[in-house]
Amino acid sequence: DSCIQFTRHASDVLLNLNRLRSRDILTDVTILVNRQQFRAHKTVLMACSGLFYTIFTDSHKCNLNAISLDPKVDPEGFAILLEFMYTSRLTLKESLIMSIMNTAIYLQMDHVVDTCHRFIKSSDP
């Protein structure tokens, strides 16, 4: 028996999900961060973040079409993490590293938190 493994299938699917997001197709939730709004797919959010997984597996909350995050969350940090969820690329700017890491802690994205820790350690003189 043989099996064909398409090695770039996961990234091709993610690319298409990101195109759907950028065109606002089948996005089903608005994330409010301070006054900024981000449209996204619940399934992608919950696949990447422990916080969103908890929210959307709760039968009382899974049908919400808008979620407000803690006002302490920095929209710029959230935007970078949302971009990461849809592209697998995490932009770590030194000026934003603390807000990215704190947002990742809040969103329960443990692997990203570890990566931020390593980035901070490696840039420490």
Partner: peptide, 21 residues
């Protein structure tokens, strides 16, 4: 998949949704 001959296909796996129609 143990014992199955796995062939790697490195080309695109699905159509690409355009940025805009």
């Amino acid at each position: 998949y143990e014992g199955v001959n796995t062939i790697k296909e490195r080309g695109r796996s699905i159509h690409e949704i355009p940025r805009q129609d």
